[in-house]
Write a protein that binds this DNA or RNA. Structure first.
Lengths: 199, 199, 199, 199
DNA sequence: TATGAATGAGGGTTCATTCAT
DNA sequence: CATGAATGAACCCTCATTCAT
């Protein structure tokens, strides 16, 4: 709205976008640090330094350290919920093996956010967010199973969702560039497929 | 490979039994606290209070907070190594499904120590111990697979050990008194069995 | 002695009326906040928000937070000096009781500004302004006493001014809407009258 | 109780007394600082430095900065309550002028603690303690008046207690070594006497 | 000139670790 | 040796003040 509309490429855009870029930078830096050292071991000053943001500014965007972690967690939860929702849309009549592969694929798409989320989910200080996230994911997985495996006894749906959740957590933890990556992902695919096929 | 399981049995037994009892009390208290609140949230003073040990004395037995966690981790690693070694002894010719059950059983036996270990493994501050523990467990699992599933291509042994490790981690995380316990354990048994049978 | 009461009236009036309104709004907002929460607990941003002024603009009018408090203090001092000067004009031959009532009345007229001033005077950070204000008020009160109570030994003038100052401070602190207001003000009137009559 | 009872003059005494001395040193240092700069402007580190105590140790004795101020306030409140209680014991039939002098004397005895207390009472952050202290003092003063001035209409007791409280606050604020001290105290005596005599 | 995002020093508080007793 | 008071670095967070727009 100010006069700078003539310089498109210079600095993204004048007002709101700056804030967005900042927030993104902060979250990215925080994600890397949390992943590397765990929630408690990371200091706000560190996050600031890593994202070229003064502590004070950090607190303009996030009211507390916990809020930073929550944002990360939520962003992951949202991505996952979307992925599962999309999968549920086409799950009806899917063969178990195909369902397994699809699940693994959903996970792989979110891998970046996922590994951070996992690091955070284990920080005991974040119980609240953690419980919430877990519950949401279990519900999503459960309803997916109801659609995809209608023959499965209802009583097994919850335990299976739990087991799958843990399994998929493993998929998310596969380190993206390592030598092990491909064979390990194959292995997980086999595992999930075998599990679902046997159900 | 199980050689690391003992320095206690070597020659330290007769005298200093006091010290041993103290160490045990400290570790037990620390385990309960770490499990409940996570590594970072537990203070040395707390551990002292919970084990009726003055902080100063705590530092006589463990040079640092990290050392307490390490001891816990190692004790768990030892138990696991022992369990896997015993299993390997009788693994030759075991049916895959039976092998799966046996693995789950080994895990269940260690569940108490295991859940603490898991809580600690996720405290990123303990990278060193964590890596070591992981490596040892993978090696043990790998050699168990070599014995139990001789038909498995050698190349799949490592990924499978990795996947199994993660799976068994899930078994260890099943909360011991919860309503979900029995069905969830059953589910894990099914899962492991299906996986090994398919291999 | 009342000379310090104006730099506003000198030559700044016609233009910049905007600025004057702003300054007034700022001072009013600041007064309310200081009164409510004390000097230290009020932030410049708050003052800005309460007076619809951007922080940056705040600093155009007042070079620091302390300057805002100083302005408030000075404005009160000016009002008091004026009131005392007026009283001194008609103090000659006034009966002690009447003088006491008049003093209380002067205070009551200034009550709004006064209570803020008192809140600020107690913020020890403002020593300088505080001392200045005090000295000016004592001088004014002293000269009023010289006119109104010529029989009073000169040596008692200073202590009496001090005591009166404190007394009048009490009057200023009577909370304006409380149930206690009327009886308490009566009580103060009695007190001042009794004191001056006995002198 | 330990073995050091043979060295009487060296360091007060070994165990509990050390703590007492520390607490006293802390309170004294805090009092001086609060008096000088006001509650908000004093930092815990400063209090530590002034009492040769590390911040950490400070927090062993007082759980928060507020607790330090509270202790100071309470100690003063206790002294005052004692003084007023003693005075009430012999107040029956006391002449108003004598009562006034006695009140001023009670104040003077507590002057050291008093001036700090006054500095703190004005710190808005300490509302809770402040209200409590005020209420207690008013109640004490009121019951003293009931005993000492039975002729006073009950309705005037509360306002008079309020006015007296403020007056006595003035007495407490007389700076202990200043040139003004003696004449000002005389003046306050006159003032209180005149007030009570007129009642 | 007005704006408010950005800055970073500094405040209260905690806790791993040390050391005098 | 055991003890637990003492230490002080470091953490999260706030806010007076500045300055690019």
């Amino acid at each position: 709205m100010t006069a700078s509309s003539s310089e498109p490429a210079r600095g993204a855009a004048p007002k709101r976008q700056r804030g967005h870029a900042r927030v993104a930078a902060i979250l990215q830096a925080a994600a890397a640090l949390f992943l590397d050292k765990g929630y408690d071991a990371v200091t706000m000053t560190e996050i600031g330094a890593a994202s070229s943001t003064a502590v004070g500014s950090l607190y303009r965007f996030f009211p507390s350290k916990e809020a930073v972690a929550d944002a990360l967690l939520r962003s992951y939860a949202d991505g996952l919920a979307d992925g599962l929702a999309a999968l549920r849309g086409r799950a009806h009549g899917l063969a178990p093996a195909a369902l397994g592969d699809a699940l693994v694929d959903v996970m792989l798409e979110l891998r970046a956010q996922r590994s951070v989320a996992l690091a955070l989910v284990d920080a005991r200080r974040l119980e609240a967010s953690r419980q919430q996230l877990r519950a949401a994911m279990l519900a999503d997985l459960g309803s997916l199973l109801a659609v995809a495996l209608p023959a499965l006894p209802a009583a097994r749906r919850a335990p299976m969702a739990l087991a799958l959740l843990h399994l998929l957590k493993g998929v998310g933890q596969v380190p993206p560039g390592a030598a092990m990556e491909a064979p390990l992902l194959d292995e997980y695919r086999r595992l999930v497929r075998a599990y679902l096929a046997a159900a």
